[in-house]
Design a protein around this nucleic acid. Structure first.
Length: 465
RNA sequence: GGCGUCGUGGCCAAGUGGUAAGGCAAGGGUCUGCAAAAUCCUCAUCGCGGGUUCGAAUCUCGCCGACGCCUCCA
């Protein structure tokens, strides 16, 4: 039985879908005006893993991830660059799409954009005004009235009175209540805008997600996800808008990932402590980032530094070792080690599922893989053939795949391979003559080429490292 | 000030009532010409102080500390 922690209730709850076997999941994507960073990657990875696991459990997942392509920051950046805002955001959408692909993140079912949802957004705002949950103000903006929603604040656990006390928001004369937020912002001179019954303008940040949810998944969804920095105000406001509009419960489960920490602080554009996804991938492979996420709890802060990354990289390499073929130089025949394969595979599978069922406990799931890898490696050392290893490795690969780990050995060009083989032949000749200095020298040379070699009685194997 | 999450070995990190998963690092074996990889062994009583209980890392209260949100943010 799958259980999920629900931010709304602050409890881990049994997962039940609105419709049998179908999961409607909406995850807040990014505002596209800059290179995405590894914090965004973390969030995308978390929900990719959740999605993969739900599919593994037999659900069909409708996974919607939006792009905010109309926004103040985009407008400002576009002005700076002298570029059309929508062209700019389109450029970064393509860019981010590539990032996600590089990270082995499965494509979402759909990627709605604000700029393409305008009629529905306007209709949505209209409906809220009609139901007296919103009002056009004197300055041309339209605001949502927080006092018109009795439940306002229930996701973030805030009360309107408390928020006012500590609020740093400038009180806006046009608002009925200081916490009222914009559904529609009137356009400034020369700014990109759309026509509406309230004049030229553009949508506020929160309404887009309510509208796109409605457009893509309907009035009610199963899972709404995003970073926990979105709980307030973004998701709080989304709930308010959607539920006031439809009169129905919006999302059953609210799932939020923790923040990536760099140097003890949240990584964010405004703090400037950013590592872009591209920068990361120029140094490490995608599995390393994923492993970093898997080793932790998706809801907790995740430490991003050389130590945690080095460990993650080692973890990946360790898992890869389980997938290597039978050894040419097994130490001897160990029937016990070989016969341990089948039961170990089964228990790995059930441990894996048990962990993942518990609010996607990926650290536990990974542990199941490590345990299986040990059994597999033992069997290989114990003389198992490829045929004997196949079953366990199949299970291993299947489970790794649920987590989205590729575990690919690096590949080189064929010229490189020829060169490597020639060097190894030369080295083995030297070894035969016990010319150890020459032998070690060649090994160092290969190391510099990124090739690790392993000697055994029956030959030398190598791989890119 | 308000709301929330959390504090487990040198590091990352599971476990959430019955006497502490996994990985990294470290030390010691096997293997190796030496390595590397793999493998085996060793390595914690769970921030502090009360309480509940036959029994708590796990529930409760207090304290200390960290982080996030309360403004744009994955």
């Amino acid at each position: 039985m799958l259980k999920i922690y629900n931010t709304l209730t602050r409890k881990t709850e049994e997962f039940q879908t609105l419709e049998p076997n179908l999961v409607k999941m909406y995850v807040c994507g990014v505002t596209v005006y800059n290179d995405a960073h590894v914090g965004h990657a973390m969030s995308a990875l978390v929900f990719d893993i959740i999605r993969r696991y739900l599919e593994y459990r037999g659900y069909t997942v409708k996974h919607v991830m939006n792009y905010t392509d109309v926004d103040d920051k985009i407008i400002n950046r576009a002005k700076q660059l002298g570029e059309d805002p929508l062209k700019l955001s389109q450029r970064y959408i393509e860019d981010y799409t590539n990032d996600l692909k590089s990270l082995n993140i499965l494509p979402a079912t759909s990627y709605p954009q604000v700029s393409k949802t305008m009629p529905l957004i306007i209709e949505f705002i209209h409906g809220l005004i009609r139901k007296e949950h919103a009002y056009p103000a004197s300055n041309g903006d339209v605001y949502f009235s927080v006092t018109s929603d009795d439940d306002y604040g229930r996701l973030s656990g805030r009360k309107l009175d408390d928020m006012q006390a500590g609020s740093r928001i400038e009180v806006d004369e046009a608002k009925d209540h200081p916490m009222d937020f914009a559904l529609w912002k009137s356009a400034k001179e020369g700014e990109i805008s759309w026509d509406s019954p309230w004049g030229k303008g553009r949508p506020g940040w929160h309404i887009e997600c309510s509208a796109m949810n409605l457009a893509e998944l309907g009035e009610q969804i199963d899972i709404h996800g995003g970073g926990n920095d979105l709980i307030f105000p973004h998701h709080e406001n989304e709930i308010a808008q959607s539920e006031c509009y439809t009169g129905k419960e919006f999302s059953r489960y609210w799932v939020h990932n923790g923040m990536l920490q760099l140097g003890g602080e949240k990584m964010s554009k405004s703090l400037g402590n950013i590592v872009s996804i591209k920068e990361f991938l120029s140094k490490r492979e995608a599995d390393v980032m994923r492993m970093l996420v898997l080793n932790g709890t998706y809801r907790a802060p995740l430490l991003f530094n050389d130590d945690t990354l080095d460990a993650a990289q080692k973890n990946v390499e360790r898992l890869k070792s389980a997938l290597r073929p039978a050894s040419v130089s097994a130490k001897g025949l160990s029937p016990e080690a070989v016969s341990a394969l089948a039961p170990a595979s089964e228990s790995a599978k059930s441990n894996f599922t048990e962990a993942m069922d518990n609010d996607f406990n990926t650290a536990g799931a990974i542990a199941a893989l490590f345990e299986l890898s040990k059994i597999i490696n033992n069997a290989r050392d114990g003389g198992a053939t490829d045929e004997q290893l196949k079953f366990a490795q199949g299970i291993f690969r299947e489970l790794a795949n649920v987590l989205g780990l590729k575990l690919e050995e690096k590949q080189g060009s064929s010229e490189q391979e020829t060169q490597v083989n020639a060097l190894i032949a030369e080295r083995n000749e030297a070894r035969k003559q016990k010319q150890w200095a020459r032998s070690d020298q060649i090994r160092d040379q290969l190391k510099e080429m990124g090739v690790t070699i392993e000697d055994s009685k029956d030959g030398t194997t190598w791989r890119y490292s």
